[in-house]
Design a protein around this nucleic acid. Structure first.
Lengths: 223, 223
DNA sequence: GAGATATAATGACTAATAGTCATTATATGA
DNA sequence: TCATATAATGACTATTAGTCATTATATCTC
């Protein structure tokens, strides 16, 4: 009895260690993949290259990931989680809701500047032919994290409404609009990094500021 | 002299006919490609399939297009031009600027509903690894048509400002914000056709209406 | 520590496919 | 009718995602 218990425990420890080792391998694959996907984009990167970069054979990669798309989405998920962490930091600050919204968008812009590559990945991942090859679980996870981010925005708007600062808007809908607006603006600049600023005649940061004040104007109660 | 002139003329006619025949071939390739790209997306479509669909050999396709990406972008350009035509119709109407903006966005939404496939193509085309394989000229053309669309929005806002209906905003910047907002919202629904409506709890058309009134609220002069 | 068993890694292989180019067919002109 | 130019072809090359039989390594048992 004691023996079997002992054994069981030992098994558990071994299993845990194996689990950890597997996670480490996965991480090292992702590290190599990140660098390559960032540099070359999805289409121009090869699984072979990722394998070589982390000192494994191609076949080994497929022991840890079902497809190239799964690796890609896993990296995108990293980005989403980083973003979520940034946003959580802001949401914890004790300030008026409109100031928090401003900070959120500025934080988002900062994140974008620091992580442009993650952004591009997010845009590709919405393509149906990419999605169709991604494992259900990974996709669900991404959607969930994105949802968490939206929840943060929504909560801030909700608080603003409760405080009588904002009109009685549907805070979910408002959060989605705000988010989509910021995303759309960033994407429009992302499409034409150089050309865009030239034709619009105004920088991304400035235009984001404009859009925040426009949106907050629409949200605030009128006196 | 007369003879040579005659010849020249005959040559010109022949050259024109050849030109027309080439354009017809190009169109028939695009017709086949459109159907296949719409159904399968970029990655899952093959040039061979396009060739078979329009009764040509694969090699022939490459006499008319430099790459698969060029075919793809050419079809996307069709979509952009259709959109531009729709928008031009609205811009010709004699109404208050805020009503025109509403009509423009509704028209855009209608266009989206009728042409979802074109929209998806637009989103993919912003990926650097796709872009890098597209001919310079085709890309420039797309950007120019997109610019024309933005000009229409901008002109309407400009008129609204001139009429004292809108605040004295930078109409280019405002047009870009409005456009990006609408695009961002449509894209967010496009990402999760089913799931999205569920989590937001409100349909795309409704949320677009919300966003229009929010934006117009921000634009209108305060009394 | 030897042998047995389980787990992990490998890379040769298959299938698919973008793009090329020498060859063949077709149309035009003298 | 033959010559020349233009258009079309499809076999071929190179690349690459994903598989799987084989090999290596670690773990366990006695």
């Amino acid at each position: 009895m004691t023996n079997s218990h002992y054994m069981n425990n030992s098994h558990k420890i071994k299993a845990e260690r194996r689990e950890k080792e597997q996670q480490d391998r996965k991480k090292s694959i992702l590290k190599a993949a990140r660098e390559i996907f960032f540099r070359k984009g999805f289409m121009d990167s090869t699984v072979e290259e990722i394998a070589v970069k982390c000192g494994l054979a191609k076949g080994t990669i497929y022991l840890y990931f079902k497809s190239k798309e799964d690796i890609y989405i896993s990296i995108m998920a990293e980005g989403l989680n980083l973003l979520k962490k940034d946003m959580e930091k802001v949401s914890g600050i004790d300030l008026r809701s409109d100031r928090l919204i401003e900070m959120l968008v500025h934080g988002y812009y900062d994140f974008y500047k620091r992580n442009k590559k993650y952004f591009r990945m997010m845009f590709l991942s919405s393509q149906p032919d990419v999605r169709s090859r991604v494992s259900e679980g990974l996709l669900k996870n991404c959607i969930a994290v994105g949802n968490d981010c939206m929840q943060i925005v929504s909560d801030i708007i909700k608080k603003g409404v409760a405080d009588g600062l904002f009109r009685k808007v549907d805070h979910w809908a408002a959060a989605n609009i705000l988010w989509a607006m910021v995303n759309g603006i960033i994407m429009s600049y992302e499409e034409d990094p150089i050309y865009r600023e030239e034709i619009v005649g105004i920088g991304l940061e400035e235009i984001l500021n404009e859009s925040i004040s426009l949106a907050l104007d629409g949200l605030r109660v009128k006196r």
